[in-house]
Design a protein around this nucleic acid. Structure first.
Lengths: 108, 108
DNA sequence: TCGTTAGTTCAAGATATCCGAACTTTAGAA
DNA sequence: TTCTAAAGTTCGGATATCTTGAACTAACGA
């Protein structure tokens, strides 16, 4: 499995971040990562962060989109891929955006 | 030309609004509508708000997506369709979202 | 009435998304 | 070791969405 690449958020256009957030499954993942930092506060495995019953290929694709938009960071840990929200980086690049999205009344 | 329908923003999911904003052309339109309220402060014609050289069919499609997401409101005025940003409605539904998007360093 | 302007609608080609199936990697058991 | 299982990735084809030229409609002015 190749190492993941994580963009510098300054190179990520706003439209890419909004696109990554414009899907209810990915929104659910981002919310989960924002609320649950995992046992050791280092993130969650894909199958913990993604909704139940989501096909693996689809899940993998969603995580890849979140990664390439700079929203999350992932690393291998045993057989798991552990991801966490790049909250500070995103906040520095797009102040207030995540706050507005994560605090919206609507989860979808 | 049929009258336009504008959704109640409470019926619009967050993902729809983010999707509407996740395209650089539509972001440009929203920015323009936010900055320029037109001669009489009642909005801008499509061809004034959209980027130069955009094919008409494409432009029409983008405006339709912005309308159905509740971001803009349009009405016929002579041969023009005049649109304006539904700033208050969107702010009430998703506080801080438009502010974060419109104030991002990045226009794209 | 005729021409012009502003947008919409239709349809088709180009793109992107979804997900089953096969593959890779890591770990633990026999 | 080898076997087996778990967690993700990659591939490929079906499906859905986006883009845009062409034809159409509505409103205006000459």
């Amino acid at each position: 499995m190749a190492r993941f690449t994580h963009p510098n958020l300054n190179d990520v256009p706003l439209a890419s971040v909004l696109h990554a957030l414009s899907d209810s499954t990915r929104l659910a993942i981002v919310r989960k990562l924002d609320q649950d930092f995992g046992i050791r506060g280092e993130g969650l495995a894909c199958n913990c962060a993604a909704p139940e019953g989501l096909p693996r290929a689809t899940m993998s694709n969603h995580f890849s989109i979140l990664r390439s938009s700079g929203l999350i960071e992932s690393r291998k840990e045993g057989t798991n891929v552990v991801s966490r929200l790049r909250r500070k980086d995103v906040d520095a690049r797009f102040p207030g955006l995540l706050h507005a999205v994560l605090n919206a009344k609507d989860g979808t």
